[in-house]
Every structure is written in structure tokens, then in C-alpha cells.
Design a protein around this nucleic acid. Sequence first.
DNA 1: CGGCGGACGTTATACGTACAACGTGATGGG
DNA 2: CCCATCACGTTGTACGTATAACGTCCGCCG
Lengths: 340, 340
Amino acid sequence: MARGSTRPTSRDVAQAAGVSQAAVSLVLGDKWRGRVSEATARRVREAAEELGYRPNLAARNLRLGHTRTVLLVVPALTTEFFAGVYTGAARVAAQHGFGVVLYPSPEGVGPARDPFASAQAALDGVIASSMAADALTAIRGDQLPLVMLDSDPDGSLGAATVNLDIADGIRQVADHLLALGHRRFLHLAADVPSWTFEVRARELAARVGAVADTELRTARAPITIDGARAAAEAALSGPGPRPTALVCDDDKLAAGAYKAARRLGLRIPDDLSVTGLDDLALATALDPELTTVRLDAELFGERGMQALLAVLEGRAPDGGDIPVELVVRGSTGAPGHRRP
Amino acid sequence: MARGSTRPTSRDVAQAAGVSQAAVSLVLGDKWRGRVSEATARRVREAAEELGYRPNLAARNLRLGHTRTVLLVVPALTTEFFAGVYTGAARVAAQHGFGVVLYPSPEGVGPARDPFASAQAALDGVIASSMAADALTAIRGDQLPLVMLDSDPDGSLGAATVNLDIADGIRQVADHLLALGHRRFLHLAADVPSWTFEVRARELAARVGAVADTELRTARAPITIDGARAAAEAALSGPGPRPTALVCDDDKLAAGAYKAARRLGLRIPDDLSVTGLDDLALATALDPELTTVRLDAELFGERGMQALLAVLEGRAPDGGDIPVELVVRGSTGAPGHRRP
DNA sequence: CGGCGGACGTTATACGTACAACGTGATGGG
DNA sequence: CCCATCACGTTGTACGTATAACGTCCGCCG
């Protein structure tokens, strides 16, 4: 884990390029015009690239007396509303060279009474969801200790992983539907490249394929209610015998499926059984309430943090997937109650 | 805005207490046992309190070489799932003296390819929702430029404000329901002390009270689906003639109201018209789709950031509430179609 | 041939903190 | 009576960066 080696500083870059630290600062700070030759500037940039130099933000902030960073305090993360607030603020901020850091005030007994203590930033490590794929390359650029959430344990990243036992959840869903008598399945899959979604597809195919006379189709949709509605509507009104069970990659997709069913005049669960995954509040806001797989998000976060602490202390993070639980509600039943 | 005065440093505290800077660091860092007398330590703490001293985190981080801060990268803020992940991670982190900063990877064309550039923290300013009330005292402790979202413009905080025109939204809701013929109203109010919710109550009362023979009751609920369900169920099964219109403080409360209606055997909108506020994806996942007030969350965020930039540059932020829009869907209709 | 200015860098310093190393009286033991 | 110990601090320094203030070499003009 490269314990001994410390991060290169601007002085290291200077030495490598055969110039002074000041010259490095000028070049990398884009203030060198008329002060440093083009050739030297290039040498500096190459040396920086070579060493993987990244400026120490604490030092820069100290020197500059400001950080061009702003804190957005929101009541909680539970609503899409503040997601939009963040997006808008971040966009404008970026246009002005500012960054935005989120401090969601913790629900219940808040541990950190002082948001500023938590926003001191510059990082010791990273916890990352495998769905935030585009950020990963940037993360790997630094040598920061990294914990991945729901990612391929054997992946090439070489990072510690903490996983929910999604595979088991999908198996429970499949077994539940098979036991009810379903044989024609539609998998409404998230259109996002991520290990966690690959697992769903693989396990569902394995479990359904193990039973005779079954059929499994797949439709892909972005993870939005209306994206899912469109995909489900198209798939359900296609040719051939209609599927009787719809397995969705998450609850939000399932909500879209409900909309699709309404528009097609299909009744849940009489004409179509639907399952989700997550067990959001949304699941019980639907009518009928959604059969889904409950994920313990808080535990997931705790385990992620514990794993990172372990890595930081040189210990091995303790493995083991986090168990999940099938919650059977009104959206699943035996197929074919009304005209099949 | 206290432009001239700069933030006090540990040296200022030392001078005020008549000791050296090192002594201040020892006392405030809780490493003084056996090195500084109780009396001196007290003097230092008092001086620090007096001056409103807060350590410069950039300097501390530079000195220490670490920050005890961790970044949590999540795909987006749209799901409650990652809210739970954050809560759990933050709890464990706090137990270990760590803080967690959120970097939600921006949706669509992400401005900041490098999350770390955005996480440099130590703050130039703050944007805060009026709902995150407990954090406000801490915020005011620092003299940071502050922009409040949806807060009392004449409040004692002396901060800049950016507001949605919630009052107008509620007026549109009230007028819509009154025009449909409703006269008995129930207000399902958020059980959160915040100016933005006070406005809802005040405007609704004013608008409904202006019409003869109307009645307005109020029920309070925490902003959760099941909290709202319980409150609405209790209020709707109470004595006296049942309300025909249920005005909810936001969409999530409305989702709870749907559940309550189902349990009471009330049909929407035949027996009960329901309205929300936010226009979340949830609104169109409900059956029937929810009549609600659309808030432009992104614009809200943009305006908040622009206001903060204005304050930082010494300009006056441009005022003006952000307009909102009533979206009429299937959850509202004329009262009393079936047995009133 | 003196010197002047542009091109190209370098040296020195400060930001605010934490902590190692170093006083300095007073007390007490041998 | 002299040195060790203790209680109570202080002096000094380093973290990594940005930038103001200085060189220094060279060509060229008068």
C-alpha cells in the first residue's frame, strides 16, 4: 500500500525538472507568460505528470487565504428536491471556479453539531459507489485508500470492497415468483454499467433457467420513473404471450412499471406481478404496496466506513456480504386470475 | 459585513490571554495536562471564546498532514438509499473523529471531472436551507457570508435570502380547490419549524378564510410517508363532517395521505381531493397522479449560488422570488360525487 | 563602449498551526 | 550546599504553496 512513499510536492517536481520550486508554481498556476520559456514550462509539466504530482490543497488554501469552496447545508438527502438544488448550485459554482461540498444535516441524533468540523476536506480516503463510475478514474489518479461499495470483489481495482448480498436477494425474488407459478418473466434492468446490476441479471437468469418451460426476456431502462414506464410499456405490449412477472432492478423502476401497467389496463397483481429492490418509502406509497428486497443502507454505510478505517490502519477489512431480506407485499400473486 | 477585520488566529488568542501561541495550541488541543496550569488553561479558553476563535483548518491540515475527513462519492442524490448510506457512514466516522463530505457526481454534463478539486473545503461562504435549523447556530458562530434558502427575508439573521414564491403556489392551490367547489379543508402540515412552512399555513388560512362558509382544520405530521399516513388517517376519521380537500405541505406528505385514504376506503378524487407541493417523481408515480405545485429546484440552487457570489464580491444580491406553477392532475376534482 | 531593458528565472517570505526541544525558577533529597 | 526533579511554560521550526522582490545574461542602441 506504498506506506513509506509520501506524495510528491512541488519541490520534487522542481528537482526533477531542474528548476526552482517557484518556477513550478508559476507554470502550473498558469502565470508564467513572459517569465518562463516555453521549453522549461513543458519540462515542468512533464515532470509533474511523470511524478503524478497533485498540489496540496491545505497548503494552497493556507497560502491563498481562501478555498473557492462553498458549503451547501440541506435538511437531509431524502428528497430529489435538494438533489436539484445541489445540481444547480454546482453548475453555477463551477462556472466561477468554485466547488460545492454537501453537508446533509444528519437525521435523528446528529453526531456532528458543527458542520465545519466535517467539511475540512482534503482527503485521507475514499468510499465510492460502483455506480459513480466516471469519478473512479479521477479517484485512482490519487493514491488514496479506497473502498468500493457493491463492486466486483475480484475486479482489477485492487481496492477493498463492501457488498450487499444482492445475488441472494434476486434468488429469493425468483424463488418467490416461481413458487407462485410464474413461468414467463420480464426483467426490467437498469441501463447503467455497474457490477451490481450485472449480478442481478446473472442470478435471475440462472435461477429462472433452472426450471423447465420458463421464459425470460429483458428490457433496459434508465433509472427514472418515466424511463422505466416507457420501457415497460413497450416490452409488455410486444408480440407473443405477455409475461406474468416483472422483476425490476430497483423500486424506482418498479414505480415506472406501475404506470405502464395502468396505461395498458393491466391490474397488479392479477394480470402482472411486480417486484422491486431497495425498499424505499416509495415502495409502500404504491398501490398495491410493492414486494421488494430490503437493503440495509445504513449498515452498508457503516460497513463501508469501517472497511476504510481498517485500510487506513493497515488492518485487513473483514469481508462477508451484508444479508438482504425479501419483503412480500401486495404486488405479487399467482398468475392468470383474469383472462390470461 | 465586517470587511476589514480578519479572523482571529491562535496568536491573537495568545496575546489576549498573555501566553504564547504554543500554549494556546496545547490547551485547545487538549494536550496540556501537566504542562499548563489549570488557571492559565482557563484564561486561554476564555480568551478564545471571547474572540470567537476558530482554528484555521487549512493550516492544521497542512501541519498534521491529514484531515480526518473522508469523501463519499455517490451516483446522485435522487434516492433515499444513499441518504441512508451517508447517515450510517457519518455515524461511524463521527465515532472515530472523522467527518464525511459528500460529493454527488453531477448528473448530465458534470462540470467537475475531478471530485477532489471540489472537496478542498474550508469555507468562503455558506448556502443553507431554512429547514436545516440546528446547523444555523453553528453557522452563525463563524462570520462566513451566508445565503438562506426559503427563509424569512426580514429575519434577524441579517443574511441574504433567496426564496421560492411558495405563497403564490399555495394561493393557486387554494383558488383551484375553491373553484372546484370545495369548502371543507384539511391542511396536512409539516411538523418542522421553518419559515417556508409558516408561509404555507398563513397563505392558506388567508385565502380560504376570505370565502364564506369555509372551514379549515390542520393536522401536523413529520415529513415521512408513514407519519403523514397516521396523521391524515386520524384527522380524516375524526368527528364532524369530513373535509373534502386535503392540502399537503409537500408531495411526500401527500403520498402518506394516499395511503390513509386507501385504508379508510376513500377514493381520490371522488371522496377526497389531494394536493402536494414540490412535483417530485413521486407525484406521477401515485394513482391518480398528484395535483401539485412545481418548484424549480435547479433554478433555486443557481439563484442561491449567484446570491452568495454577489455577497462575496460586495454586491447586493438581486432579489425577487422565484415563480412557481400549479400542475393540475387527477387527484383533484369537484367534491361529493359519491355519498358525501 | 556604457548602459538599458527584455527574457528567464531564483531567493526569500508568509500563511496559521502543532509539537519537539529547550529554558527557568522553586523544591527537595543526599 | 549542589544537583536532580518538577511544574509551567516558551522558542523555534516545519508543513507546501504563491508571489513579491531580486538577480543575471544577452543583445542592441546611442
